[in-house]
């Protein structure tokens, strides 16, 4: 286990619980993520990892426990929640680019409308971000005209445009064709290298090995293991994790 330096914690979940009807999707979750850390959350489907990721910016409500970002507890509703969300970038499985806005507008909308950045500045920053993720020449197009991989890279640029403290990735490559997965992962690996704090729910074990500082393994709504990638992949402690990894290796 990594040692925590007090005050360094950026995202903190304490005793978080959630049910979907009878199903207990998050069971007493405790998780601390420090500044600059890349945490990869893996686990079988239905283990609650997406719910965990979405709870961190309150796209999912929780029943008990607390979630705090940079020392501030997530507000329930309203302006404070919106402000806090602006500091948390989110990348979705299905991209969710605004279908009626151009690629450039998708990236500038948040800075202009939420942060009050002048349009000229926002356009310039957005173009720089789009260049950085390799889709600068697509700026005037609509989302539907781009491939999935390109759309997801735009979605990453859109989240980065808000200059977030932490980025959440909810299975960012699961909806992509195999040949497009790498172009998105490359952008994410670059981000990790630059020191962005990231929480990544994924099935891409290659990414976990390459970029993660920690791997969190979830099963049945619980965090079963929380370790370095090296330790987790070569020496898993629990039977649940051993079972999960063995199934991956047979393919």
């Amino acid at each position: 286990m990594t040692t925590l330096v007090p005050g360094d914690t950026l995202v903190s979940l304490q005793a978080v619980n959630k049910h979907y009807g009878q199903l207990h999707v998050l069971k007493d979750i405790n998780l601390q993520v420090r500044k600059g850390e890349v945490v990869v959350v893996i686990g079988p489907s239905g283990s609650g990892k997406s719910t965990l990721c979405r709870a961190i910016n309150r796209l999912e409500t929780i029943e008990s426990g607390t979630i705090s970002i940079d020392g501030k507890v997530l507000p329930e509703e309203g302006k404070e929640l919106a402000q806090l969300r602006a500091d948390v970038g989110m990348v979705f499985q299905s991209f969710n680019l605004f279908a009626h806005k151009t690629i450039l507008e998708n990236v500038t909308l948040g800075p202009i409308k939420v942060k009050g950045v002048p349009k000229g500045t926002a356009d310039k920053d957005a173009m720089a971000l789009l260049e950085r993720v390799g889709v600068g020449h697509q700026a005037p197009k609509l989302p539907a005209q781009l491939s999935g991989g390109q759309q997801q890279r735009v979605a990453i640029a859109r989240a980065l445009a808000m200059k977030p403290k932490v980025m959440l990735f909810d299975e960012p490559t699961s909806a992509l064709d195999p040949e497009m997965i790498n172009e998105v992962l490359d952008v994410m690996i670059q981000l990790a290298k630059e020191g962005m704090t990231m929480i990544v729910v994924t099935h891409e074990m290659g990414f976990a090995r390459k970029a993660a500082d920690r791997v969190v393994f979830m099963a049945d709504g619980q965090i079963v293991e929380d370790d370095t990638p090296e330790e987790f992949f070569t020496n898993p402690k629990s039977d649940r994790a051993k079972d999960f990894l063995s199934k991956l290796l047979t393919h």
Binding site: L59, A82, A86, F92, N96, F98, R158
Partner: peptide
Amino acid sequence: PVGQAEAARSIGMKFGQVLNL
């Protein structure tokens, strides 16, 4: 699609902005 509203909320838009924009 509900993802459109979720994406808008996740970049910090308030309810009125999500609806209007």
